[in-house]
Computed example of a mutant assay.
Amino acid sequence: MIVQRFVKWCETATSSQRAEGAAILSRALVDGRITEEERPGADAALILLLDDPSPKVRHAMAMELADGRGAPRAVLRALCEDNDSIACIVAGRSPALSDDDLIDLVATGSNALRGAIAGRRLVSTRVAAALAELADAANCVVLLANPGAGIAGISYRRLAERHGDIAAVRGALMARSDLPSTVRQTLILRTGQALAELPMLRNLIGGERADRLAFEACERATALLADNICEGEVAALVEHLRASGQLNVAFLLRTVCGGNIDLFAAALVRLSAMSDRRVRTILADGRQSAFRTLMAAAGLPAASAPLFRCAVAVWRDLAVGRLSVAVEDVPQVIMQRVAGSFADLRGETGFDEIMRFLHRLAGETSRDAARQRARQLAA
C-alpha cells in the first residue's frame, strides 16, 4: 500500500518535493521507525526512487542512508554506481558496505570514488591493498594520511614501487609510524635518485658529483635507519640490503664504526651462512684466523678483515673501559690503529680504497659532531 500511495504522489510532486519525500522515507528507515510489516514496501519505494530522473532525489537518499546500517544493500550499491557526487557520499561513509563491496568499487570506480573510499573512517587491510594496487598517487596520499587505515607491509611495498618517485607519496609513507624499515630504505634510495636528477643541482655541480653526493647521502641515511630499528626488523632489513646489493663493505664499515654490532653480526650471519652463535663468538674473541675465515665465508675482501677486526676491538675496549673516546672519534681511532698496525697491507687489493672510505667517514662524523655542538650553543 505504501508503494502505491508513494508512486501516485510522485506523479504530481516537484523534484524538490520528491527529494524531501525520499529523505523522509530514508531517514525513517535508518532510524528504525518503519515496522517489519512496512519494510518490504519501504524498500520497494526506495528502489523505485533510484530511477527518478532528478539527481536531487538520489542525493537526498544518499545523504540519509550513508551513515545507517538498515538500508537495502541493493540500494546502497546502486547509489555507489551513480554519478560521483552521489556515489562518493555512500562509498565514503556507509558502514553497511562490506570489504568485498568496497574492493569491487575500487576496481571499477572512478578516481573520485577511490578517494572517498581511501578517506573512510576505517579502511581494512584488504581494501587498503586494493587501493595500493589501483589508486592514483593523490588517492594513495589520502590513504596514507588516514589514521584509520590498516596497511599491511606488502601494501606499503606496492605503494613505494608504484608511486615512490612522487615526493608527496614519499612524504606520506615516511610519516606512517608502522612503515617497515625495508620500505623506508627503498624510499631513501628513491629520494636520493630524485635529488641526483634535479636539473638545478646537476647544472650547479655537475652530473657526476650530484650522483656521488646522492649516493653518499643514501649511505648515511641507511646507516641512521639501521641504528634506529627494532630488533624484530633487523633480519628483514639485512635481507633487503643483501637482495638489493647494498650489503657491501662500505655499509658494513659504517655499521661497525657506528657501534651497531648487532646489525653487523646479523649481516655476517646472512652473508656467511654461519650460525648466529658462531658469528658472535668470533666477534667476541677477535682471533685473527677466525676473523679471516668469517670474512671469506661472507664473501668480503681479505683486506677488510683487519679493519673490521680492529673496529670491533675498539668498541670492545670502549665497553670494558680500556678506552675513553667520544663516539664521533671512533672512526678516527680505528683508522689510526689500522694505519699503524697493518701498514704491510697497503697495496693489497681493496685495502687502500677501504682506508679512503674510512678517512671520509671520520671526516663526516667529525663534521656532524661540530654541527651538533654549534646547534647546542645556539639553543
Rank of each mutant, 00 (worst) to 15 (best):
A297N: 14
S244A: 11
N248M: 05
A305R: 02
A266W: 13
G206A: 06
I229P: 10
V183E: 06
V238P: 02
G207I: 13
S289N: 04
V256A: 12
E231K: 13
C218E: 08
S181R: 05
R278C: 06
E219T: 04
L213M: 11
L253H: 15
A235K: 12
D227I: 07
L187T: 08
A243H: 11
V234K: 15
L189P: 02
R212P: 00
M200I: 03
S304G: 02
T281M: 14
A290H: 00
D285P: 00
H240Q: 11
V320G: 00
Q185E: 09
S181G: 12
L283D: 08
S272I: 09
P306H: 05
L307M: 12
E239H: 07
R242E: 13
R242C: 10
A303I: 00
T281S: 15
Q193C: 14
R277Y: 09
L307H: 06
E219K: 09
I229Y: 07
L252W: 11
A196V: 03
G286I: 14
T293H: 03
D262I: 04
A302K: 06
L224K: 09
R254V: 02
P180D: 09
L237D: 14
L318S: 01
S177G: 10
N248A: 08
A266K: 15
M295F: 02
T186S: 13
N203A: 03
G207P: 01
F308A: 04
F264P: 03
R316P: 00
A226F: 06
R254W: 07
M295V: 06
T182H: 03
R270W: 05
R309N: 04
L271E: 10
R280F: 13
V314D: 01
L271K: 12
W315N: 00
L241Y: 10
P306V: 05
G192L: 10
Q185W: 05
I282T: 02
A236M: 06
L294S: 06
C230Q: 09
A273S: 11
V249G: 07
D285A: 14
A226P: 02
A284G: 01
A243T: 12
N203T: 00
S244T: 11
A267P: 08
L241C: 11
G232K: 12
G207F: 04
L247K: 13
M200A: 11
A302P: 14
A305Y: 01
A284R: 09
L283Q: 07
A243C: 10
A303P: 01
L268G: 13
R309L: 02
R220Q: 07
L237H: 13
E231I: 06
S272A: 12
S181L: 03
L225Y: 03
V256S: 14
M174C: 08
L189T: 12
Q246D: 08
A267K: 13
R176C: 02
L283E: 10
V312T: 04
L263R: 15
T293W: 01
V234D: 11
R202W: 03
T182E: 05
G232M: 04
L224M: 08
L300Q: 05
L271A: 08
S244L: 03
L271R: 12
A175L: 14
S244N: 14
S177M: 09
S289V: 04
